[in-house]
Amino acid sequence: MQDFGGAFVEAFSRVLAADADLVEIVVLSLRVSLAAVGIACLIGLPLGAALAVARFPGRGVVLVLVNALMGLPPVVVGLAVYLLLSNAGPMGVLQLLYTPAAMIVAQCVLVTPIVVALSRQIIESLHQEYDEQLRSMGLSRLQAVPTLLWEARFGLLTVILAGFGRAIAEVGAVIIVGGNINHVTRVMTTTIALETSKGNLGLALGLGMILLVLAIGVNAAVMVLRGADRTAHA
């Protein structure tokens, strides 16, 4: 087995050489995961905030369910999305199977519960602080949601990063619904799985390190943005 250093050198020499295939894979990974997280946030943040402020019968059950869904195994999600999008499935007519769109759907299903559950928690504690003030201004609980979302923005960034981490790192779902098709649906994680199965452990490890560097880059960029604003608002 090759050593870590050798793996690192091999992977990065490919990056520095701007290996077209590798660049394509990295770009697709980012595109799929960012889109999935974006959609998951559009659905999950308002839903999480609404769950935080709304009081209705069965709310406790819903919260338990959402929290449990955070632990969905990616393979199960992949399988479920496959069965939906398959030509033999109810949504086969969309012809999305083995496309990046199918991978986005699968990752979205994985990430949305995380966004809902964590944003619910953050907004709920924030809501206790703001509730009386916002109601005194004539806003109902649900009308307060946009304000609360913006006030919680620093905490919600961490939620979004958690969702992105889950999306970019997962392999079980995208390999089933994407098919790991070269130049079409091959992303970082499915490439790593493929190279591992070819016995190219060094290359697989190197790709893993690139994935890690990407994740660090995204996190650092968000933290810098957040840090500048957050210190100002104490």
Partner: peptide, 21 residues
């Protein structure tokens, strides 16, 4: 507020679909 949120959601969704496909 809710009206504006709804509009923002719709716009975001359209943009994301464009990025994704």
């Amino acid at each position: 507020f809710p009206a504006r949120l709804g509009r923002a959601l719709a716009a975001g969704l359209v943009a994301l679909v464009a990025i994704a496909n």
